[in-house]
Design a protein around this nucleic acid. Structure first.
Length: 332
DNA sequence: AAGTGGTCCAACCGCCAATCC
DNA sequence: TGGATTGGCGGTTGGACCACT
């Protein structure tokens, strides 16, 4: 009856992953693609639970993950999606495909919660200083509450529109926002060893015939390439922060990483990566890419559709309907 | 230099719906 | 059909790191 256990509870290694384990996992996924996690520990010999392998892949090794500081736009988007969706980090992450739900959750818990709390306290403090006893957040009468809600919705609407329609920054400006001067990415430093270990192996793999799911598997190293870069140069911490698919021109390496890792096709193809994010996000991405092509932006309708389909709260529906009717008209 | 407290984040834990056999 | 298991998710933890005393 049922399936065999995914892994023995005994003899399962826990704790931080070593570069060697990463290499084993990534090379396995390169050959077989992500999925069937149950088979991963047994087929690779990794002393890890299948769940641990999946988490390591999705949160760290998966291609297309952007490391480093969150941009202002991402921050805004998280704040307002969190307001709309609650702590549904996976759903929120589907709108930020380069970020993992874990990253977003961590960022929310460590940065944004405090930030919003401070703002709220500051807001309340101002009210108290001004002689108001009521909480700014919770006006007592229904009329006040409704006015407050309308104001909040309007503000949220505006900020979400801002977040969804950033002035597309170029790579260098993104680069600046990802990394403070002198800051070293923990990811980069931790993957540096992986990169060193991978360096020779990847060159070999580039000459191997592509396997059936080569799209996905070549991508597997897209987020490792910066480590490779840093391994071969004395600095390059800023480069480590940059999403390679966005900023290939930053590559100064001796070989063409875009060819080696298949960056060119990464964003636009029907890769495993795009399939691995939610259908909504894929739609979203698809429209974003189309928007880029036509220099116009349409993602709001998709956000709206998704929330409607998800059975979002009536408030959310009203908000989005309002958003679509009002601000889209203004915006486009 | 050592101790302390705060911050950050990778990884684990537990729950649950979906899937398998 | 139903129990076992997987895969996905959100919450939480533990340790590394840093600033300050």
């Amino acid at each position: 009856m049922g399936r065999p256990p995914c892994c023995d509870k005994t003899g399962v290694k826990k704790g931080p992953w070593t570069p060697e384990e990463d290499i084993i996992l990534v090379s396995y996924i390169q050959q077989h693609g992500p999925g069937n996690w149950r088979a991963v520990p047994t087929n690779t010999g990794l002393l890890r639970c299948s769940k641990s392998c999946r988490l390591r892949w999705t949160n760290y090794l998966r291609p297309g993950i952007k490391r480093g500081n969150f941009t202002e736009q991402e921050e805004k988007m998280i704040i307002h999606l969190q307001a709309l969706l609650g702590n549904r980090w996976a759903a929120i992450a589907s709108y930020l495909p380069q970020r993992t739900d874990n990253d977003i959750k961590n960022y929310w818990n460590t940065h944004l919660k405090k930030k919003l709390k401070k703002l709220e306290e500051g807001h309340q403090g101002n009210f108290r200083e001004g002689g108001h006893n009521q909480s700014a957040s919770y006006p007592t009468s229904r009329g006040q509450w409704e006015r407050r809600l309308q104001t909040d919705i309007h503000m949220a609407k505006q900020a979400l529109v801002d977040a969804l329609h950033p002035e597309q920054p170029n790579c260098l400006s993104q680069l600046k926002s990802y990394t403070k001067p002198g800051q070293t990415s923990a990811y980069a430093s931790s993957t540096e060893n992986i990169a060193k270990l991978l360096k020779g192996w990847m060159r070999d793999s580039s000459s191997k015939p592509a396997c059936a799911n080569s799209d996905a598997t070549q991508f597997s190293f897209s987020n490792m390439a910066p480590g490779t870069e840093s391994a071969s140069s004395s600095e390059g911490t800023e480069q480590n922060q940059v999403n390679n698919s966005d900023c290939m021109e930053l590559s100064e390496g001796g070989f063409d990483e875009s060819v080696l890792f298949g960056f060119d096709s990464f964003e636009s193809s029907n890769s495993d990566f795009s399939q691995s994010v939610s259908p909504e996000a894929s739609l979203f991405q698809d429209h974003e890419s189309k928007s880029d092509q036509h220099n116009e932006q349409v993602p709001l309708s998709l956000l709206e559709k998704w929330l409607f389909d998800e059975g979002a709260t009536t408030q959310g529906k009203d908000f989005l309907r309002d958003l679509t009717l009002d601000d889209n008209a203004n915006f486009f």
